[in-house]
């Protein structure tokens, strides 16, 4: 099975070391109905393990609501947003970066918990 690849452009910024934010592009193998989170996992596992995104906890299944980010400019849950081609992944607010895609705490809009609607 030949897989085609897609370009994923990721926001990077370590305030302790970098003067300014920048973007890095990664080529990753595409699988149908893969999420932005799957793409980040691939990058972290196989290409660049210096990348930070909220991963030490979280469910990957759209339940905990912690992986809020922006995919192609739209605010979404990274784990339940399918990527279909070349993609840009950024934090919700680039001005509040703790590191890369992880945001500083403060106002709770970085991690709007999923409301239990049942």
């Amino acid at each position: 099975m030949s897989k085609h690849s897609v370009q994923v452009k990721v926001f990077r910024y370590d305030p302790a070391r970098d003067a300014d934010p920048y973007y890095l592009e990664y080529a990753i193998p595409f699988e149908p109905r893969m999420s932005a989170m799957n793409a980040l996992d691939f990058i972290y596992h196989n290409i660049d393990s210096t990348l930070s995104y909220y991963d030490h906890a979280g469910c990957s299944l759209g339940i905990c609501g912690r992986c809020v980010g922006r995919v192609n400019g739209k605010t979404v849950l990274l784990c339940q947003t399918a990527i279909t081609g070349d993609t840009v992944i950024e934090p919700v607010s680039t001005g509040r970066t703790l590191k890369d895609l992880v945001m500083r705490k403060g106002r709770r809009d970085d991690a709007e918990p999923t409301k239990d609607t049942d």
Binding site: D14, A16, Y44, S49, T50, S52, K99, D100, V102
Partner: peptide, 14 residues
């Protein structure tokens, strides 16, 4: 070991 030696949200360290 980790690729980055920074301590702030270093997921590889975790």
């Amino acid at each position: 070991g980790t690729a980055s030696s920074g301590r702030v949200y270093n997921k590889e360290w975790i």
